[in-house]
Amino acid sequence: MKKISSLICCILICAFVSAQTQSNMKEYLLTKSKHHKTVAWVLVGAGSAAIITGLIYNSSHKEGSFEQNFTGGFIIASGLICAGASIPYFISANSKKKRAASLAFGKQSILTPVNNVFCLTTQPAVFLRIPISR
Rank of each mutant, 00 (worst) to 15 (best):
T112Q: 14
S6D: 10
G84V: 15
A46N: 10
K96I: 08
S59M: 14
S6C: 12
S102G: 10
S33W: 03
G45H: 04
G106V: 04
P88I: 07
Y57P: 00
K98T: 01
Q123L: 09
C14M: 09
A125T: 11
I110H: 07
T21C: 13
W41Y: 14
I110N: 10
T71R: 01
I91A: 15
N24V: 02
I75W: 00
L128N: 07
I87F: 06
L55D: 02
M1G: 13
K26V: 00
P113V: 06
I75F: 00
G106T: 10
C119W: 10
S5K: 07
G84P: 03
E63V: 06
S86E: 01
Y89W: 14
A125Q: 14
S95L: 15
Y28I: 01
Q20Y: 05
P124N: 04
K3V: 06
H61M: 01
I4C: 13
A50P: 04
A104I: 05
S95F: 11
I76Y: 02
Q123H: 09
S18H: 10
I110S: 09
S65E: 09
N69H: 11
F66Y: 11
I76F: 04
E63L: 06
F127E: 13
F105H: 12
R134M: 02
V126M: 01
K3H: 11
R134Q: 14
L30T: 03
G64C: 05
P113N: 06
N69M: 04
L30I: 03
R134F: 05
F74G: 03
I8A: 10
P88T: 04
Y28G: 15
G64R: 02
Q123K: 15
T121R: 11
I87D: 01
I132K: 09
R134L: 10
I81K: 15
E27A: 14
Y89E: 05
S60D: 04
Q20D: 12
A83E: 01
I8N: 12
C10P: 01
K32N: 06
K96A: 02
N116V: 05
F74W: 13
I4Q: 15
T53G: 08
F127Q: 14
S92F: 03
K34I: 03
T71H: 06
E63G: 13
A83D: 00
C10L: 13
L128Y: 08
Y28R: 12
V39N: 06
G54F: 02
